[in-house]
Structures are given as C-alpha cells and as structure tokens.
Amino acid sequence: MSHVSVNTALVRSESPSVQRVMLQVLVALLPGIVALYWLTGPGVLLNVVFACFFAVILECMVLVVRKKSLHGEGTDLSIVVAASLLALSVPPTLPFMHLLFGVLVLVLLGKHVFGGLGQNPFNPAMVAYAALFISFPQSMTLWFNPTELTSVSLLDTLKFKTEVVGQTLSHYPAWDAITKATPLEHLRTLKLNQETISVELANHTVSQAPWIIVSACFFIGGVYLLWRKVIQWQIPVTVIASFAIVSLVWATFGTNSIPNIGYSLFSGALIFGAFFIATDPVTAASSTAGRIVYGTGIGLLAFIIRYFGGYPDGFAFAVLLMNLCVPTIDYAVLKLSQP
C-alpha cells in the first residue's frame, strides 16, 4: 500500500458513519411499527425484539468464529436493521421457532456465507423472508383478524407464538376465528374461485383502511430517509411509479380482475418495500441510471408476481430477482455512459 493518506478530518465537519446511517433507518421505521402495533397487536413488537436480540447474538458468534473484530462489524447496527426489516415483514402470529429459523438464515445464508456486511448479493432480510415463506407457508400467510383484535392480549399472543410450536395450526380451531389470511391472499383466493370480485373489492376497500394507514406510516418513514439523504429518490419513486403505471394500464384496458390503483399501492409490502427493502445500498444498483432500471424492474416484477404468479405478494421475490441483475445493470450503465 502506498503512504498517501487522505486527512479526512481536515475537510469534513461531521463524519458520516455506518452506525449513523443505520440509526436513521431504525428511526424511520418507528411510525410503521407503531401503526402495525395498533393494527395487529403486540405480536409485531415481540417479533422485532426477538429477531434483533437473536440476530445480534448470532452475529457476534459468527464474528468470533470468523476471527473478526466485534468493534467493526458487530457495532454498526446493520444486523439490527436487517433483523427489524425481517420482523416487520413476517406476520405477528409467527411462532418464535419459525422466526428463529428466519434469523438464522438471515445471518448465516443471507450475510456471512458471502463474506459479511457489504459482500452479500441478495438482501439478507428478503432471503430470510423467502426461506420462511417457502418453509412455513401456513404460519407465514396467517394474520390476526383486525376486527377480533380487542380480544387478543399480550399473553394470548405469547401463548400462540410459543405453544403452536410442535402442532399443526389446524389443531387450534379456536384460533381460526381470530386469524385470517392477508388481504392479498384473500384476493387471490377469490380470483381462483372464479367468483366476481368487484363486489368483494368494494367491500374490501373499506376493510383496507387500516392497512392504508400502516402503509402511510411507512411512507412517512421513507420520506424522512429521503430528507436525511440516507436513501436516494430513484429507487422508491421508480418502484412505486412503475407498479402504479402498469396497474393503471391493466385496470383500464385489461380484465376486471385487478383492483384499482389505490388498493394496489397501499396493500401488501409495496410501500414498505419500496422505501426500506429495495433501497438497501449493498444489494441495489450503484449509478443513478442503474437505480432507475433496478427500481423499475422491481415494480414490474412485483406486479407480475402479485397478479399472475403463484404467490399473493411477490415483493420479496421481485427484489431477489432484481438483486441478481444488479451486476449486469451496473456494468451496462458504466459501458453506456462512458465515451
């Protein structure tokens, strides 16, 4: 190595650091967490606390095994952010054992198998989400029914999240009443039964209201990140815009099996994902043009998977698929933009 060194202290007043970036992301998540707590009960808090706790412990263990300094990677809060994102993506009813598996996948398969922070080609939280979704489809598509929520106490939730382990959910018929499928899962069920869904959709828009509030809270958090320049505008804007445009075109010229734009945008993980998942700098494209291509790709894939694919909400898969394309996008942009 040469002996030139940039004396950064001479020229920068406030030193940017990874910790600070991550802390801002955590702050931006708060409104969304509060909204989810209001909508789905204490399960979401349990998820966040549990996931973060185990993720940090596991991360430290891995760092010790890999003979890395705990001060560098251990304290940069990136693992806390990733674990929180996973905890917010999964249902609040998810049994602890399943969440633990998700955290294991996140830290080991999502991150450290590739060499740790900054080396992973795929968004670790989404890798864990996909693994959970494929492995435990029953518990991953089940949410508390908001209308029954008043009867669910913290104790009940804890009981559900621990006792159900080792048993099939269908053995707990009592829980059947207070749990239900997510709105998008429900929509898909309707579509497959080939019933006319327009009436259902009209009713559903009303029952959608709480979900719109959750999405709006995540939106506020995303705007905060934009304001603090933690994320750039290209990815969230293009994700949402491309999804909205395709939905609009399809709703106008296509069949009536697609709900209106408002419903489309504010249901599922779209807003949350556009601001918090797709913008993960490690796995997103680098250049401005690259980020636009990347975001557009995610929006289109999310639309295709949601309305034509095998899963009710394909945001995680859309992100993972576009993660795969990132090196190609970066290279192509570089080649095209330079003389």
């Binding site: 004396n7 560098g72 990677e73 740790g116 922070l117 490690v282």
Partner: peptide
Amino acid sequence: NASATVAQPCIRCN
C-alpha cells in the same frame, strides 16, 4: 493523524 480510524466494510451506499 486523523485518518487512523478503522475501516469498516463497504455497504455500497454510493
């Protein structure tokens, strides 16, 4: 020498 801070992994923040 203020540049003696430890380098952390790149998070590709761009």
